[in-house]
């Protein structure tokens, strides 16, 4: 991916110099290794700050509405999932196609930072990516790992690595994966009996501190006032009562029904390491099975829960 960052920087510098876009949203190095953060670059001198590597796990579509100027365009570097969320944004009228210049970045997956951190007892001081080989350094040791061994789960099951919409591509498209069992994780939970399923989700969310990082990192969550922040009426309690935690996670997930692209930003952002995708994955599976729908692939189609069709499944209505 090192080669494509040069191309990204060249494209961005050119766009900014010619005034084609006012800002570029991309990734920059974080303050510690593996903590790439989103950045909005406005001058071509700052273009050198842009990076793209296997730690750019957040979803940049999330930041588009925040930095959108009243007039003119912004450029966004978009992995497969980011591009699908840009499509979702456009379908939901959050941004229009002519306000965006999309720099497509084919993606071979992002790393699971917790998995890497678990290999070390001390703090990681350096992270070097060279193709599929990652070299991770701490004061105690230096570890070489293969990127595909430490990929995030959503990247391992990703079937849309190439951007679905773009103005320019920063590299040649990569080969898409085909999976025999795309929803093995959902099936695993579904195979349990009801009490075990409930116990699984209780165990999953028991450490939730209600920080809402999952919501904030999610490009789908753009409501001006989120249901959890409403006080009149107060839909859900604010504390760590387990009923409130259950309500929050259930409703947060359901608000993503038929819209989630499984980008993994929610899990990436969670400070407690909760795999909140266990909720949304079930919805994605149902959207695919009931409506043949994967979010963010087609600008012309309305999301399944947004539109009526005579062949919608309706056997749940008595």
């Amino acid at each position: 991916m090192d080669t494509c960052i040069e191309k990204i920087r060249t494209i961005c510098a050119d766009l900014l110099a010619k005034g084609k876009v006012q800002k570029v949203i991309g990734f920059a190095e974080g303050s510690i290794p593996m903590a790439s953060r989103p950045i909005a670059v406005t001058s071509k001198e700052d273009v050198a700050k842009l990076v793209f590597n296997a730690t750019c796990g957040l979803n940049l579509a999330n930041y588009v509405s925040d930095v959108l100027p009243k007039e003119g365009k912004i450029a966004v570097t978009a992995k497969g999932c980011d591009s699908r969320n840009l499509v979702t944004h456009m379908v939901e009228n959050q941004v229009s196609r002519d306000q965006l210049y999309i720099i497509g970045v084919p993606c071979t997956g992002m790393v699971d930072k917790r998995k890497i951190a678990a290999l070390f007892e001390d703090e990681i001081t350096d992270f070097i990516e060279d193709g599929d080989t990652l070299t991770i350094v701490s004061p105690q040791k230096k570890e070489k790992v293969s990127k595909k061994d430490v990929l995030r789960h959503n990247c391992r099951v990703c079937t849309h690595r190439n951007p679905v919409v773009f103005d320019v591509m920063a590299a040649e498209p990569v080969e898409e994966q085909s999976l025999d069992q795309p929803f093995a994780d959902v099936d695993h939970i579904a195979a349990m009996d009801p009490a075990a399923r409930w116990a699984h989700f209780q165990e999953l969310t028991k450490n939730c501190i209600r920080c809402y990082a999952c919501r904030n990192a999610c490009p789908l969550c753009y409501c001006p006032t989120c249901f959890v922040d409403e006080s009149s009426p107060q839909w859900v309690g604010k504390g760590q009562d387990k009923t409130d935690i259950n309500t929050f996670h259930f409703l947060r997930a359901f608000h993503c029904a038929g819209r989630c692209t499984d980008c993994g930003a929610c899990v990436e952002a969670c400070p407690m390491g909760i795999n909140v995708r266990d909720f949304t994955r079930k919805l994605n599976k149902d959207a695919l099975e009931l409506f043949g729908w994967e979010a963010g692939l087609d600008m012309e189609k309305r999301p399944p829960l947004d539109v009526y069709s005579p062949d919608d499944p309706n056997d749940f209505i008595k």
Binding site: V186, I189, A190, P194, A195, A196, R197, W198, A199, H200, F201, N246, F250, A253, F254, A257, G258, F279, K282, L283, D286, A287, L290, L305, F316
Partner: peptide, 10 residues
């Protein structure tokens, strides 16, 4: 889908 998710959660 809501019912399915609830059922999935137990």
């Amino acid at each position: 889908m809501m019912g399915n998710l609830l059922e999935h959660m137990g």
